[in-house]
C-alpha cells in the first residue's frame, strides 16, 4: 500500500511541477535543412549565455509551421524553422489560433546541388530543361503532349551519359521540393517551350504550371521523404543515380559525391551569393512575438542567430555551407525592433 501511495504522490508532484515552473528554454522545430544551422547556433548560444541550450527538433518545414500555428503558450514552440516562406494559408491558420504577431527572419541562402557517385557516369553539366525532359510526367513531342518517353539521360540530351534515368529527389513534405519544382522543372518547362505549347493547347496558365511540375510515376524518379543521408545511401547503392542535395550536405561528403553544374555554373557559396547559380532558396525562421519576454532568452537567441559573428560571411554557419545574406544588418535591426510581418513592409 505504502508503495502505491508514494507512487501517486510522485505523479502528483510531477504534474504540479509542470504547472508551477515556467519553461526556461527556447523550443525550435521545423525544416531539417535549417536544423544543422539552428543546432550550431543553439550550441554556441548555450556556451556564451546564461540561458540553457535551446531545443531544436526536426520534422520538415510544413510540420514545423503547423506546430508553430497551434497556438500561444508554453506548450507550443517559440520558433519554426522553414526552408521556404510561410504561406498565406498558414498565416490564416495561425491567426485563427491566436498567433497573430509573427516575426519573419531570413538567415541566409542555401543552394540545391545535383550530385552523383564520384566514380559513376560523367554527370558534369545539367540544364533545367534536362531535368524537365527526364522527370516530367508529360512532355511535348512534335507539338503533341505525350507521356514521357525518355528512358536514358542520353535520350534527354546527347551530351549526358547513356545510362538509365534514376533520380532521387526530395519528397513533397520537404521545402526543398518546392524550390526544385519552381527553379528546375518549371524553368525547364518554359525553356523547352512545353509550357507555351500547353497553354496554346487550351490549358490555363495555372494548369500548365501544375502539369510542368508533376513528376513521372513510373519509377525513374524516386521521392526521398527522409534526410539527405537516405539520398546518399541510394546513390551509394546505385552508381547510375543522380540525387538532389543541399550544398552543405554535399560539402561534408565530397569524398563520395561529385557535383554537376547547373546552367553552366558550379554551385559554391560565392556563385550562390551573387545569384549566378540558379537553384537556391532563402532559409527562414519565424518567431512568435507573444513569447518574447515570456520565454527567457528567446529574443537573445534570435539576435544571436543573425549576429555578424554567427551568420556573417566568416561565421560558423557560412563555414558549414550557409550562404550569408547581404542584408543581414536590416534583419538584425528588424529583430531589435521586434517588427512583425505586415509591419514596415
Amino acid at each position: 500500500m505504502s508503495v502505491k501511495l508514494s507512487v501517486s504522490a510522485l505523479a502528483i508532484a510531477a504534474v504540479s511541477a509542470t504547472t508551477a515552473a515556467a519553461r526556461d528554454n527556447v523550443q525550435v522545430a521545423g525544416s531539417s535543412t535549417v536544423l544543422p544551422y539552428a543546432s550550431i547556433v543553439a550550441e554556441a548560444f548555450g556556451e556564451n549565455f546564461e540561458f540553457p541550450t535551446p531545443v531544436v527538433e526536426s520534422g520538415g518545414s510544413s510540420a514545423g509551421l503547423k506546430r508553430f500555428c497551434e497556438g500561444v503558450g508554453e506548450n507550443t514552440i517559440d520558433i519554426a524553422n522553414a526552408s521556404r516562406a510561410i504561406r498565406e494559408r498558414e498565416i490564416a491558420v495561425c491567426a485563427e489560433n491566436g498567433v497573430s504577431d509573427i516575426i519573419e527572419v531570413r538567415i541566409g541562402y542555401d543552394g540545391i546541388v545535383f550530385a552523383s557517385q564520384i566514380d559513376g557516369p560523367d554527370f558534369v553539366a545539367f540544364e533545367p530543361s534536362d531535368w524537365f525532359l527526364a522527370l516530367a510526367e508529360n512532355i511535348v513531342v512534335d507539338g503533341e503532349i505525350v507521356a514521357n518517353p525518355n528512358m536514358t539521360w542520353a535520350d534527354v540530351n546527347a551530351d549526358l551519359p547513356a545510362v538509365e534515368i534514376a533520380a532521387f529527389i526530395p519528397g513533397t513534405k520537404h521545402g526543398t521540393r518546392e524550390v526544385f519544382e519552381e527553379k528546375v522543372l518549371l524553368q525547364g518547362c518554359e525553356d523547352t517551350g512545353a509550357m507555351q505549347a500547353m497553354i496554346d493547347g487550351g490549358m490555363s496558365e495555372d494548369d500548365a504550371e501544375h502539369a510542368c511540375m508533376s513528376v513521372r510515376t513510373d519509377g525513374k524518379s524516386v521521392d526521398i521523404d527522409g534526410d539527405y543521408t537516405e539520398t546518399l545511401a541510394r546513390i551509394d547503392s546505385n552508381s547510375e543515380g543522380v540525387g538532389v542535395f543541399g550544398l552543405a550536405f554535399y560539402e561534408n561528403n565530397t569524398d563520395t559525391l561529385k557535383v554537376a553544374t547547373m546552367s553552366g555554373v558550379a554551385p559554391s557559396t560565392e556563385t550562390i551569393s551573387t545569384g549566378e547559380y540558379p537553384v537556391s532558396r532563402p532559409l527562414f525562421f519565424y518567431i512568435k512575438k507573444a513569447h518574447i519576454g515570456v520565454i527567457p532568452g528567446l529574443k537573445e537567441f534570435a539576435s544571436f542567430f543573425v549576429a555578424d559573428e554567427i551568420a556573417g560571411p566568416d561565421g560558423p554557419l557560412a563555414e558549414y555551407g550557409l550562404v550569408s545574406d547581404p542584408e543581414l544588418a536590416a534583419t538584425q535591426a528588424m529583430i531589435e525592433a521586434e517588427e512583425t510581418m505586415g509591419e514596415g513592409m
Binding site: A13, A14, A17, T18, A21, N25, Q27, A29, L35, A38, S39, A42, E43, G46, P52, T53, V55, V56, E57, S58, G59
Partner: peptide
C-alpha cells in the same frame, strides 16, 4: 513525441527537471 533532434544538450538540474526538461 518530439524526442528526436538537437535536444540532449543540457544535464537536468535535479530530479524533477530530469522528468520535465526536454
Amino acid at each position: 513525441i518530439g524526442m528526436v533532434g538537437y535536444i540532449a544538450t543540457n544535464y537536468p538540474d535535479g530530479f524533477v527537471s530530469g522528468f520535465m526538461d526536454p
